[in-house]
Design a protein around this nucleic acid. Structure first.
Length: 567
RNA sequence: UGGGGCGUAGUCAAGUGGUUAAGACACAGGACUUUGACUCCUGCAUUCGGAGGUUCGAAUCCUCCCGCCCCAGCCA
């Protein structure tokens, strides 16, 4: 997964050529989050891009820089979470941790330089007036009455802004560019505002804070960034990025390159909307396993390798695009299938009594931890007279092609014995509550000496050995592939995005499971212990993702399930 | 006649004047199977937003047209 074994995306081509023609000897990228929220899968694309590029060239580094220029929105809590998420994803910024706030003094100096050159001025228009003067998309703006102040006056005013002489909103510093420019960003953009708010890092040292458009290019240049990668919506800001660097005394001019942000079907990826899901209690928090935040999908059981592989697979381009969530799931299964140990767990238990199995007998049956990787070893699972099987693995009146248990039918219990269903026991309401089966002692381990075959193999747990658990089944959070399509993304929240199985029974080895360990519950999907709610007394597992299920998906298409047949 | 960007399959995405237009996901068949998983095989764009033009030859070059996205925070 390095730069050498993939098709070159347009960014790597630019870098290749910058290296070839000697424009740069080393490549420096940066990931510049604003610490005002949690990282999500969309950020992962940017992180993988920036760190991935660095990994593919000989002389490189990546800077992690917190873009902390707006103390009214930013918190230390977020910077800690962001660092943890990046590390979890598997990337290391080494010594290259920076904060835009580290540059406040220098930034202030550059602003003064602009003022001295007659390229910035203190404006006393209100926010509303500035908006009115800006003009519209089709009409030019009007110049501010404060535009022609002398450098001396501007310097004095700006100094007094810094000194705290003026209230919030009373004055701003603006770059003097061109009020008629077709690009609104160039119509004398605000570069400093007064904000009497203490900053998580600089405390009360400042009451004027620089704006993104002024801070970002200078921070990049100060750090010697060579390629400043950002998303498409910043393209419109690039002329301003370049203007700032062209008009101050600085020896470095990074190249801003924009790429398309990640959109995912059935998912919202916007801090505002994610925040709303949390605030409206649609989910339990930022790390709810249904959230596309890195903390959410980590809790869900996604692996860093799967996310990195996904980011590699989606590519990088300038075309607006929406990746199908199926691709993410494919990448996840690809990793989990290879690496997750197999275990048996019954989500929706149906009791089975094996009538001809001795009451007091217990056997430990060997089971492979991974059918394709013998080096992962095996474990013993206890077997006894009373077991649980999945309710959905029994049908009293089996549909065509159903391969599992039914009255009179024989199936294999994985790693154990062949059993035949002899009797169905129901309660007063006609609900099946128990099965009586017989087993064939000759089939221990799952093979019949006489060579007879069974069509189905089902999973099971021994009733008296199993550990009870709660298992949470997740489905997509939205019912529409484009929840961001119209304004009403809350209107298409999937009411079945969470199903709680309160009476699941798992093989005993799972009592030792720890958060962060992925398991495949055979035939059911991939699961992990919940890091939030699981306790030793009450195990809680999350379903990370189902197994591919051609049986059910085919039947769904045919309509069997819609007609209410189980399973 | 505001400015900027983007259109290759259902979804991503290679290809940038000469190949039957890569690959993956999805989907559909089939084989295998002690997981209806995995794996394997097969199929899936006579055509690159459209129309003209240049050329022996065009997804690639030119012209016009069509569609979609972004921008009017003292947010980033």
């Amino acid at each position: 997964m390095t730069n050498n074994d993939r098709p070159r995306d347009f960014i790597r081509k630019i870098i290749d050529s910058d290296l070839e023609n000697g424009r740069h000897a080393e490549i420096v990228t940066r990931f510049p989050p604003e610490p005002n929220g949690y990282l999500h899968i969309g950020h992962a694309k940017s992180i993988c891009l920036n760190f991935g590029i660095a990994a593919g060239y000989p002389h490189t580094r990546v800077h992690l820089r917190f873009d902390d220029t707006n103390p009214s929105k930013e918190e230390q809590e977020y910077v800690d979470a962001i660092k943890a998420d990046i590390k979890w994803l598997g990337f290391d910024w080494g010594d290259h941790l920076f904060h835009a706030s580290d540059y406040f003094e220098k930034l202030y100096g550059f602003a003064e330089e602009l003022i001295k050159k007659g390229l910035a001025y203190v404006c006393e228009l209100t926010a509303d007036e500035i908006r009115e003067h800006r003009g519209t998309l089709t009409e030019p703006g009007k110049e501010s009455p404060f535009r022609e102040r002398s450098a001396e006056e501007n310097l004095d005013l700006f100094e007094r802004m810094r000194a705290g002489e003026f209230p919030d909103g009373s004055k701003v510093l603006r770059a003097k560019i061109d009020m008629k420019n077709g690009n609104l960003n160039l119509r004398d953009p605000v570069i400093y505002r007064i904000m009497h708010t203490s900053h998580p890092r600089t405390g009360d040292a400042w009451c004027v804070y620089p704006m993104y458009d002024f801070t970002h290019p200078i921070s990049d240049a100060l750090e010697g960034i060579t390629h400043s990668l950002c998303t498409l919506e910043f393209e419109y800001h690039r002329p301003l990025y370049d203007w700032v660097l062209d008009h101050i005394t600085i020896s470095c001019h990074p190249r801003q390159i924009e790429f398309a942000r990640l959109n995912l079907s059935y998912t919202v990826v916007s801090k505002r909307k994610l925040l709303k899901l949390v605030n409206e209690n649609v989910v339990s928090g930022w790390d709810d396993p249904r959230m596309p935040t890195l903390s959410g999908i980590r809790r869900r059981g996604y692996t860093p390798a799967a996310i990195r592989y996904f980011c590699y697979r989606i590519g990088v381009a300038r075309k607006d695009s929406t990746v199908e969530v199926e691709l993410l799931e494919h990448c996840l299964r690809d990793d989990l299938n290879e690496n997750a140990p197999r275990v048996l767990g019954v989500l929706d238990p149906l009791k089975v009594v094996i009538s001809n199995y001795p009451e007091e007998l217990e056997e430990d049956l060997p089971a492979a931890n991974h059918p394709k990787r013998p080096e992962m070893g095996e474990r013993k699972i206890p077997f006894s007279r009373e077991i649980y099987i999945e309710r959905g693995d029994f049908m009293e009146e089996p549909v065509k092609k159903f391969k599992r248990l039914a009255p009179g039918r024989e199936v294999r219990l994985r790693y154990a014995y062949f059993i035949t269903c002899e009797e169905v026991i129901k309660d007063d309401n006609g609900v099946v509550v128990e099965l009586r089966c017989s087993y064939d002692p000759e089939t221990r381990g799952g093979n019949a000496p006489d060579g007879r075959k069974v069509k189905g193999t089902i999973h099971w747990v021994s009733a008296r050995h199993a550990v009870p658990a709660e298992v949470r089944l997740y489905d997509r959070l939205f019912t529409r592939p484009d929840p961001e399509g119209d304004g009403d993304f809350l209107g298409c929240v999937n009411p079945d995005s969470l199903t709680v199985m309160t009476d699941s029974r798992l093989e005993p080895s799972l009592a030792a499971a720890r958060p962060g360990e992925n398991y495949q519950f055979e035939r059911n999907g991939y699961f992990c212990l919940d890091s939030g709610d699981s306790t030793r007394k009450r195990l809680v597992f999350n379903r990370t993702v189902t197994l591919r299920d051609t049986w059910n998906s085919r039947r769904r298409l045919r309509g069997d399930l819609l007609r209410g047949q189980q399973p």
